[in-house]
Amino acid sequence: MIGRRGRRRPPIVALALGAVAVALIAIPLVGLLQRAAWGSLVDDLTDPASTEALRLSLTTSLAATGVALVLGLPLAWLLARTDLPGRAVVRALVLLPMVLPPVVGGVALLSAFSLRSPLGGWLHDVFGLQLTFSTAGVVLAETFVALPFFVITVEAALRQADERYEQVAATLGARPATIFRRVTLPAIAPAVGAGAVLAWARALGEFGATVTFAGNIAGRTRTLPLAVYLALESDPDAAIALSLVLLAVSFVVLVALRDRWLGRS
């Protein structure tokens, strides 16, 4: 093509398959948009039950992301940078929630933390802490499913990062904590961001583990996906409206963060 030299035209096969991939995801979402009752949208969304579920979803998913960040960063570092025995086993273990059906994850959490389990009973007797049917339980369930996404992303980045920068920093007199903060962390910052976004997205859409472990209590554990599931029966229009909110919030965040963390073009 004249005037566009140097810009290779993408192969037709790639274009076609890429378009199918986009369609696969876009078409159902367009279907949702087309089915939405736009007339009653405002009413559906300003309904206190909706705003409450949205607020709960945002706070719990952000809290879960925070927990994943605080716990996942050291774990990823240990997995990538040390030769602790049993790392392979630990890595596989940490990734298990990705393949476990979320409902089973919920049952697993129940087995461990319900009041009748030894650990859950102990937490309740000693600290008066009950995770089941609590907002903390929602955060726990969301963290359980979201943490692997963060760890796997950050660990991969740590493996790729050039350790020699850290060695140079050490010869310059920097202590390990300083090296991590000023050399390692800046090098893996994009991956930390991407991992956090992935974990947050996973936590935001969490349903199975949450409903099984934390139940479905209005204002306490009824996050947006649970509210959507309940509303599907009684008021599909409201359910779709709620889903649109979930989609809109996620879409805005993902687009806004894309350039920054998910790799610039």
Partner: peptide, 11 residues
């Protein structure tokens, strides 16, 4: 450890 050796390195 490297940090305490007072060695300058140009890799």
């Amino acid at each position: 450890p490297p940090a305490e050796r007072r060695v300058g390195l140009v890799p």
